[in-house]
Structures are given as structure tokens and as C-alpha cells.
Amino acid sequence: MSQEHTPLTEGVYYILLALYEPRHGYGIMQFAEEMSNGRVKLGAGTIYGAIKSLLKKKWIKAYEEDGRKKEYIITDLGKEIVEFEVARLKELYINGQNLLNREEL
């Protein structure tokens, strides 16, 4: 994974997390809202615009349709992106905590 990876938006981050299991758009919205304790509310336009972009990047793919709503699932490349983002966020958190702890001394 390139060090030049652009940080994910919060919406895209939650969409990718949601798709560790097959989900349709409404399921993604529910997942993001529940996981963020109601703080992140993704609209249909946001979801479907992001899905189109993520499909193009091959971070997600269409899951087998069962005749109902189309579902999506994360790809191995998408999982690498999430792992990179989690490591990046962890570094940010640790650096912030270290600075705050130093200032408390």
C-alpha cells in the first residue's frame, strides 16, 4: 500500500466497514448510524455516489443478487485500504495522546 494513500472521509470509512458483510444501501446507512451512536447519518445520495466510486476503485463489488435489493461487499483491496486507514488513525490518536500527556506534566 502506498504511503501516498489519501485519508478516507468518515462516510467512506463507515461504508467500507459496513461492507465486511453483504449489505444494500439502506443497510449501510443503518450500520453507519448505529456504529457512530447516531452521529454519522449518510443520505441516499452520499451512499450511492460513494458506492459508484468504490466499485470503480475495486474496493467493493456487487454481491450476488437474490432478486431483491442489490447488495455489496468489500474486496481484499478494500480491506487493505481499511487496514491502512486504521493504522493511520491509530498513529494520529497516539501522537495526540502523547502530546496531551506531555502537556499535563
Rank of each mutant, 00 (worst) to 15 (best):
I47T: 08
I28D: 04
K61S: 08
E80S: 12
R68F: 10
K52A: 15
P22K: 04
K52Y: 15
G38P: 14
I74H: 01
R23F: 08
G27N: 05
A62P: 03
G25E: 07
Y48R: 15
K57C: 07
M29R: 11
S53Y: 05
G78F: 01
S36P: 02
L77W: 06
H24G: 09
G49I: 04
I51W: 05
Y20I: 13
T46Q: 06
I15E: 00
K57D: 11
I73D: 03
S53V: 07
K41M: 07
S53E: 10
L19K: 06
G27I: 05
K41P: 00
E33M: 06
R23A: 11
V82P: 10
K41R: 10
Y13G: 09
R39T: 15
I47M: 13
E65I: 09
E34L: 15
E33C: 08
D66A: 11
E83V: 05
K61D: 04
K79S: 12
T46F: 05
Q30R: 11
K61L: 08
K58H: 13
W59Y: 09
I60Y: 04
K70E: 10
Y26K: 15
I51V: 11
E80M: 12
E34D: 14
S36M: 02
V82K: 08
I74C: 02
I15R: 00
D76T: 13
I15Y: 00
A62D: 08
I28R: 03
I60E: 02
K79R: 14
K61E: 13
L55G: 12
M35L: 11
Y72I: 03
V86F: 00
Y63M: 00
E83W: 01
Y63N: 01
V12E: 14
F31R: 04
P22T: 05
G45I: 06
G38L: 13
R39N: 11
D76K: 14
E64R: 01
K79I: 10
E71G: 07
K79H: 10
I74L: 03
V86S: 02
E85V: 07
K52H: 14
I73R: 08
R23Y: 08
K70D: 07
L42Q: 02
Y63W: 04
